[in-house]
């Protein structure tokens, strides 16, 4: 536990709108260990991006946004920091890479200038050494002829290059955590492969931990060490990539994995029927109940909490787990039920 860079406890981000309260994130616990790549995976509206933005405190300033819980960065609660203190942390200790490289660089400034700005602001470096740092960073992210590229403007970069530029910017102050929100979603497959490769190498070389927000299970399997699966504002399953892909415990995770076509197979796909719940009007009990093939009475009454599934660090929030735990001693074939679907 001492090696946790980030620990989030009972994070709740609620938006107060005209139509009532939207519980975008509703009681999320997670941690990021030093040097690991954690995936937060889920479909649109599950709260994965809101989680990351809440951690960066990019959400919570407006009166309609209520963020509660604890966000411990090296043991210090970010929620109690002032905006000024946060500005010191953002970009220096934790930095963010957004989905759209088009909008995360300012078109009016040279790419090098934008990268150099980071050490100027955070480390009070002079212009010259910062510019040199910018060029180093561009070299690091594999941009050819970095000296020339540093003096160019974002529009002179292609999409993949731009995303490298953004990664270079996020690296400039040697942060120990990068939060990447769908960093490859806007990119083509061959370019995505390059960027994923880059992120993996950066983690290996610099030991920077990465929190990867994505909807793409392929990206998760390729790049990440641990996975947290989110559904309707809650984490429903958490474990290592091997746990999640080889032995998914939550029916939602199972459903997600089965929804994908298997290479070379023409077997009929098994979608998750129905639609995710409306965040304005969440059901009592488990939020997956209406789409769950194993729904039981208890699921409609009480919300399941994350409990260890097959091992301590593989957790799932599902009453099927509870069942398993309860009949831990005398368990029979009954608890095998969720696995029959494989």
């Amino acid at each position: 536990m001492a090696d946790n860079i980030l620990e989030v406890r009972d994070l709740k981000t609620h938006f107060h709108t005209n139509d009532g309260v939207v519980k975008a994130v509703d009681g999320v616990d997670l941690h990021v260990e030093k040097g690991e790549i954690l995936a937060i995976v889920g479909e649109s509206g599950c709260g994965k991006s809101v989680t990351s933005q809440s951690i960066m405190r990019l959400i919570g300033a407006k009166s309609s946004e209520k963020v509660s819980g604890e966000i411990l960065y090296h043991g210090e609660d970010l929620l109690s920091k002032t905006e000024k203190e946060m500005r010191q942390i953002r970009g220096k200790d934790m930095s963010m890479v957004f989905q759209d490289p088009m909008t995360s660089l300012n078109p009016a400034y040279k790419v090098g200038t934008q990268i150099a700005e980071m050490p100027i602001i955070h480390e009070k470096k002079d212009k010259k050494s910062s510019w040199k740092r910018a060029i180093d960073m561009l070299t690091k992210v594999g941009i050819p002829s970095p000296e020339k590229r540093a003096s160019q403007y974002p529009h002179q970069f292609s999409g993949g290059m731009r995303q490298r530029g953004v990664v270079a910017m996020s690296l400039a102050c040697d942060p120990d955590l990068i939060i990447a929100d769908e960093p490859t979603t806007a990119l083509d497959v061959t370019i995505q492969a390059q960027v994923l490769d880059l992120l993996r190498k950066l983690r290996d070389d610099t030991g920077t931990a990465i929190m990867m927000i994505t909807h793409d299970l392929g990206v998760v399997a390729e790049l990440c060490d641990r996975v947290a699966v989110m559904y309707a504002g809650k984490i429903v399953e958490e474990g290592t990539v091997a746990d999640i892909f080889d032995n998914p415990q939550h029916p939602y995770t199972q459903g997600l994995i089965h929804s994908l076509p298997k290479p070379g197979s023409r077997e009929r796909l098994k979608p998750i029927e129905g639609q995710p719940p409306n965040l304005h009007n969440l059901p009592e009990g488990c939020r997956f109940q209406d789409r769950c093939p194993f729904v039981m009475d208890v699921c409609r009454e009480k919300q399941p909490e994350l409990v260890p599934a097959d091992k301590q660090d593989h957790q799932a929030a599902c009453w099927l787990m509870g069942e398993e735990e309860n009949d831990g001693d005398g368990r029979t074939g009954e608890s095998e039920e969720p696995e029959k679907t494989f």
């Binding site: 995505q192 392929g218 990206v219 390729e222 892909f245």
Partner: peptide
């Protein structure tokens, strides 16, 4: 192109042909 697609399977061996440059 085929080798660039991330496969949602942890046991998948990626024998990746990384393309240089951009389209």
């Amino acid at each position: 192109l085929l080798s660039s697609v991330p496969v949602p399977d942890v046991h998948h061996n990626t024998d990746r042909v990384l393309l240089e440059g951009e389209i």
